[in-house]
């Protein structure tokens, strides 16, 4: 076997082992407290990977992704309530709707925010997050305001309660990773990395920087919104300061920086180290 083929085989083998171990966590570990940690670890793997598509590949550090996380949770809760979806497995089928609604929000916000660069962009994303939080607080008729929004409570026993959410979060982490991997090796991904290095130069060689950045922003936000939706259903009750929490946005940024900004596996590593800790 040639050297590159051997390296690829080793990588695939390692990936398979990690996937099997991840899949078996709730089987071998039945303590709800431990599975709860696993749920949040898988959640942050997905969040950090999704954030990295924007922040890592383009170099645009958004500290406002908590807005998409919370918006996804609220959108999901409202969709479930308006459609009268009962608790159980069925709500998971509606998670993509929360993602789609988050994408619409991200298009609006990104279209404006991405006209700025560097520190200004960071500040605009923070401001945007607090605006969304304020809206969640003040649109009482829609969101319940400070009283919060309740989700249908799944009819599962305490021992089993975390398991479906663990697999849902794991699936979202896998989807985020697959999308991140695909983008990294695409022409689009190369354009994002060029923007990260020198945006004006990228423009000069034909990279449609605004479109690329907006696309990355929207993909990133959509994934975060879907994860937020699952989170809302998991905790069964959200209110503005809890769902749109600046600490969530800061945590996932820290994880990406710790593990390796702009790399595929860095966000995974950062989340696995920081979240259980």
């Amino acid at each position: 076997m040639s050297s590159p083929a051997r390296v690829r085989a080793v990588k695939l083998g390692a990936l398979l082992i990690v996937a099997v171990v991840a899949l078996l966590v709730p089987v071998f570990e039945t303590d709800p407290a431990t599975v709860n940690v696993a749920v949040f670890t898988a959640m942050y793997v997905g969040l950090a990977t999704a954030w990295n598509i924007m922040g890592g590949y383009t170099g645009y550090v958004s500290l406002g992704h908590a807005a998409f996380f919370g918006f996804g949770a609220y959108a999901f809760g409202l969709v479930l309530a308006h459609l009268g979806i009962q608790a159980g497995y069925e709500p998971f089928l509606f998670v993509p709707i929360a993602g789609a609604l988050t994408v619409v929000l991200a298009l609006l916000i990104g279209w404006i925010a991405l006209r700025t660069r560097a520190a200004t962009f960071v500040i605009v994303t923070i401001a945007m997050m607090f605006m969304i939080q304020l809206l969640a607080e003040n649109l009482v008729g829609l969101t319940g305001g400070g009283s919060g929004l309740s989700f249908p409570v799944p009819p599962w026993s305490g021992d089993f309660f975390d398991t479906p959410f663990y697999y849902a979060m794991l699936l979202m982490a896998a989807i985020s990773l697959a999308i991140s991997w695909w983008i990294r090796r695409s022409k689009f991904g190369l354009g994002l990395l060029a923007i990260r290095d020198d945006e004006d130069k990228a423009l000069a060689v034909g990279v449609p920087a605004h479109t690329y950045k907006l696309t990355a922003f929207v993909i990133s936000a959509g994934l975060v919104g879907m994860i937020g939706a699952i989170y809302g259903y998991y905790v069964t009750y959200i209110y503005p300061q809890y769902a749109i929490d600046p600490l969530v946005g800061i945590s996932l940024v820290l994880m990406v920086f710790l593990g390796g900004l702009g790399t595929l596996w860095g966000p995974v590593l950062g989340a696995v180290i920081l979240e259980p800790a």
Binding site: R185, S186, K187, F188, L190, G191
Partner: peptide
């Protein structure tokens, strides 16, 4: 095509 095609 740019989004879905390989970079190299």
């Amino acid at each position: 095509r740019a989004l879905f095609s390989r970079g190299q």
